[in-house]
Amino acid sequence: MFGFWEGALAVFEPDGFVLPPPSEIVGAFFDDFDRIFTGARVTGFIIVTGLIAGAIAAMVAALLVTRFRLASEIITPLAVAISAIPIIALAPIFQNWFGLVSSRPNQLIVALLVFFPIFINTTKGLSQVEASQIELMESYAASKSTIMREVRIPNALPFVFTSLKLASSLAVIAAIVAEYFGGRQDALGNLITGNAGLARYAEAWAAVLAGTIIGTILYVLVVVAERRTIPWHSSIRGTETTSGG
């Protein structure tokens, strides 16, 4: 694919700065490695902390909603309202609150953006339990919290991992786009806007490449955690037999 990309650019010779050839992007990546590495560290930190905070909040909210009717009546409409907000559009507002060069507003954007998909999926997993499994637990006189621990939470884990995979790429997008509006000057988003503004397209693309790498690492980490946590699940066992045979 990269060969085709290089070749097509060589044949059609577009203006050069619109889409640089991959060799130039990789070159820029290594020439500019120090700045890109710093950017990746700064943005990566925002992505990871925002993702963790958003995921924890979403899972706690899902547990409360499933366990207590009152919580459900308060949290569910709130979560739906949050999901209706174009969260990325809040970046400049948050940056006004916390200061233009702070990481806080961007962490908040990431956390808010990943909250809803994780919340919805976790809630689904906690509540979509086979009715006879709940009856079975009730026949053992199991309490609500025992049912939560022994049935609902394990039942929700596959849903949680599915949503975390989705959230890991959302988090990368959220952090970088939020940085277009403000945040630390050495972050990836600023590197992209800065370089693009100076027509240094290869450098801008190199920063995008760094974002892609962060997203991929996160995704792989989630998949590894998934395999270790729910080896019994059909999706995992399915892939095991395919790769094995």
């Binding site: 086979e130 006879s132 884990l157």
Partner: peptide, 17 residues
């Protein structure tokens, strides 16, 4: 509450985990 009976349903209802 005293767990005096055992129950089995049409669906096995085993916990896959």
């Amino acid at each position: 509450l005293d767990q005096d009976y055992g129950m089995a349903f049409q669906r096995a209802g085993l916990f896959e985990w």
